Computed example of a mutant assay.
Amino acid sequence: MTIEIEDDAATTAARAVERLRLAEARLARRRQSECGPSENARAAMRVILDRADHGATVTPSEIAQHLGISAASVTGMLDRLHAGGLIAFVVNPTDRRSKFIVPFDRGADPDAVDPVTAQIRAFAAALPDGTADQVAAFLDRVREVVDSECT
């Protein structure tokens, strides 16, 4: 016998967000051990590419601050990205003790760095007019709750 449960729209949305959070956690665990750069490395690459696309530079300290991780963790991650040919280091001309991180191959497709984001962008492009703003506002509020937990 199957029990039918009728949920209102708010409960349905809340359950969908919880399934998304669980899927993100599973993906993060898989990425740590099975499929290439970690989630932090992918996030760092997005920051590096975005800054380069806007003609700005980024330092290891800025990446650490953006990701909310230690400078030591960033150093190891950047060394791995450099060894993989994804980034290069450039001496800061105004402070020779510091360095900037730049993408090594500007021809690299940002969607190849994170194909999940590319697929999500395609789904978002297919949303009906006005819906994308509502979904974004809802998800931003969910993110704020998640970000404020245990702070």
Score class of each variant (00 low, 15 high):
His54Lys: 10
Thr75Val: 06
Phe100Pro: 06
Gln32Met: 11
Ala43His: 09
Ala88His: 14
Arg97Ser: 04
Val74Trp: 04
Asp95Ser: 04
Asp53Phe: 01
Asp105His: 11
Ile63Trp: 11
Arg29Thr: 14
Val74Asn: 09
Leu27Asp: 06
Ala43Gly: 05
Asp95Arg: 05
Gly36Arg: 10
Gly36Gln: 11
Gly85Gln: 04
Ser33Asp: 15
Gln65Lys: 09
Glu62Asp: 04
Val58Thr: 05
Arg42Gln: 06
Val102Phe: 04
Gln32Phe: 10
Thr59His: 05
Arg46Cys: 08
Pro60Thr: 10
Glu62Leu: 11
Phe89Ile: 10
Gln65Gly: 05
Asn40His: 14
Leu49Val: 03
Met45Leu: 14
Asp50Cys: 01
Ser38Thr: 15
Ala44Ser: 10
Ile101Ala: 01
Arg29Trp: 02
Leu81His: 12
Arg30Gln: 05
Leu86Met: 15
Glu39Gln: 13
Asp79Ala: 14
Lys99Asp: 07
Ala52Val: 03
Phe100Tyr: 12
Arg31Met: 12
Ala72Phe: 09
Ala43Phe: 08
Pro37Gly: 04
Cys35Leu: 13
Ile48Ser: 06
Lys99His: 09
Ala28Glu: 11
Leu27His: 12
Ala72Cys: 11
Ala88Thr: 15
Pro60Val: 07
His82Gly: 09
Gly84His: 02
Arg30Leu: 10
His54Gln: 01
Ile101Cys: 08
Asp95Lys: 03
Ala52Gln: 08
Ala88Lys: 15
Gly76Ala: 11
Arg42Tyr: 02
Gly84Val: 12
Ser98Tyr: 03
Asp53Ala: 14
Asp50Ala: 13
Ser61Cys: 03
Arg80Pro: 11
Asn40Tyr: 11
Cys35Thr: 15
Asp105Lys: 12
Arg51Phe: 02
His66Asp: 15
His66Phe: 13
Asn92Ala: 02
Arg30Ala: 14
Cys35Tyr: 00
Pro37Tyr: 06
Leu81Tyr: 06
Ser38Met: 13
Asp105Glu: 11
Leu49Ala: 08
Ser73Asp: 12
Ser70Tyr: 06
Gln32Lys: 15
Asp53Leu: 05
Ala43Cys: 00
Pro60Leu: 09
Gly55Arg: 02
Asp79Asn: 15
Ala88Val: 14
Ala52Thr: 04
Arg46Ile: 04
Ala44Asn: 04
Ala28Trp: 00
Ala71His: 03
Ala43Pro: 00
Met45Lys: 00
Gly84Asp: 13
His54Ile: 02
Ala56Ile: 00
Ala44Phe: 05
Gly55Val: 07
Gly84Pro: 00
Ala44Ile: 01
Asn40Ile: 02
Val47Gly: 07
Met45Phe: 01
His66Glu: 15
Arg30Pro: 01
His82Asp: 15
Ala43Tyr: 06
Pro37Asn: 10
Ala28Pro: 06
Cys35Ala: 14
Ala41Gly: 12
Ser33Arg: 15
Ile101Thr: 09
Ala28Leu: 07
Thr59Met: 02
Asp50Pro: 00
Gly68Ile: 01
Met77Ser: 00
Phe89Tyr: 07
Ala56Phe: 02
Leu81Thr: 13
Arg29Ser: 14
Thr59Pro: 09
Ile63Phe: 04
Leu27Ile: 12
Thr94Arg: 08
Met77Thr: 07
Leu67His: 04
Ser70Leu: 01
Ser38Lys: 09
Asp105Leu: 03
Arg46Trp: 03
Gly85Ala: 06
Arg51Asn: 03
Asn40Arg: 10
Thr57Arg: 13
Asp53Val: 12
Asp50Lys: 07
Pro60Met: 13
